[in-house]
Amino acid sequence: MPEAGVPVGYFFAVSTLLFSLGVFGALRRTNPVAILMSIELMLNAVNINFVAFSRHLGAADPVRGPMFAIFVITVAAAEVSLGLAIVLALLRRRRSADVNEFDALKG
């Protein structure tokens, strides 16, 4: 057990549940903003895992895990800004917030 006093498995359990909630939300929601929020939940769960693994198994290279987490946060910030811009453009053009109605790219 680390000096923090929390077994590392607990972090994996929480991140698993957080990721599953994100999957549930991303599949269930029809509102594009809510889907983006669910995706953010999933990315946060992944980041918890990166940091927890690095903290408890990364004796050889302790920097790598946090570094991955930083890049995930960076990409997530870019993703959310672009995603919300697309949502705004869609709302202006279609007057609708249901992803089931956005089928312009349907083959």
Binding site: A34, V80, D98
Partner: peptide
């Protein structure tokens, strides 16, 4: 991220983003 999310929600018509 929260600022951008809330701005998007509030800039758009609330009825449009309410969903189900």
């Amino acid at each position: 991220v929260m600022t951008v999310l809330l701005f998007t929600i509030m800039l758009s018509d609330i009825r449009e983003v309410r969903g189900l």
